[in-house]
Design a protein around this nucleic acid. Structure first.
Lengths: 164, 164
DNA sequence: TGGGATTATTTGGGATATCATGGGAAACAT
DNA sequence: ATGTTTCCCATGATATCCCAAATAATCCCA
């Protein structure tokens, strides 16, 4: 099904360039999709996705009351979105704005979350992750209803194959 | 898909010239469209678009009761619209009227919102953006139905209930 | 199963092209 | 003339391209 999974940590060089993990590139290339990045509305991270998601936001705006606050919120997402061009080596250039927003310095962590992925300051991501796991233990799992009958493609309990 | 996305901050030089961001120019050139600017009806900013959007407004007016106040309002948009000519370097000249309306001084911020874009006083735009983000955090994201008909998509682009 | 060889991927740097900006001079209008 | 607009070229900053080095993953055969 072609999803963004697993995490990768790459270096941001002094020109602001950052390699997109090869597996993520493969997903995009298979679909011949350009890559879009935008600032998360709710967290200090960047979100990456393909054009279909951007198109949905555009269409949603057109169908809404243009005076509503919701439209202003959606416009904020589009205004922060950039189509990223990859160089010959599969790198993107992060704008100063993006770097500042996600508070990145010289390393970036990609977290695949299915149809999209996020880019975090590694330390911040890890803190959130342990926090989430702690919550899961103390409060139990969020209700998860996975599709009909199948089981979750069960992964080894420890940690997905975080290579590196 | 050819959309106006992202934000750009450019200087208005002392002759009143302002560069149109290269990516926006590229969209217009690909479509061989001239650029139109008009005063926003609802906010202190200028709106930029191609001819198709102007046509939509004209059509909307034609289909309405020509005596209604709404028609008068929409006509205001049209009467403020100008076709902008770009110089060899891709710059436009803002009329004194436009500058006064958007309260611009020596910098202008372009905000792409899909099929059109806006031009703001940078400080004012940023305040509005902060507001939208604050709202998104406290009130949640606008309802967006993603994944057209298929199953409940993992979530809205902004990232939501941070399950990860 | 081990470990060296091979390939894929990431990272770095220099050369080149693109873009925003500024200014002078020509064209235009008042 | 006088002020303004348009055209053209120059410049600096920055993004892009291209090639090479370093690093990590994979393969293959003993």
């Amino acid at each position: 099904m072609d999803l963004f999974l697993s995490t990768f940590e790459n270096r941001i060089d002094r020109k602001g360039r950052l390699s997109v993990p090869a597996p993520f590139r493969a997903v995009l290339e298979r679909r011949r999709d350009p890559l879009y990045l935008f600032k998360s509305l709710t967290e200090p991270c960047l979100e990456g996705c393909g054009p279909e998601r951007i198109g949905q936001i555009v269409d949603a705006i057109d169908s809404m009351d243009s005076l509503s606050e919701e439209v202003a919120t959606l416009q904020t997402m589009l205004s922060s979105a950039q189509e990223m061009k990859l160089d010959g080596e599969g790198r993107i250039m992060l704008s100063a704005d993006f770097i500042a927003f996600a508070e990145l310095d010289d390393m970036a962590l990609y977290a695949g979350i299915g149809r999209s992925f996020q880019i975090w300051l590694p330390a911040r991501y890890r803190a959130r992750e342990t926090e989430a796991r702690t919550r899961a233990k103390s409060e139990g799992l969020p209700s998860l209803r996975l599709g009909g009958g199948r089981r979750p493609p069960d992964e080894t309990p420890g940690d997905p194959q975080g290579r590196r």
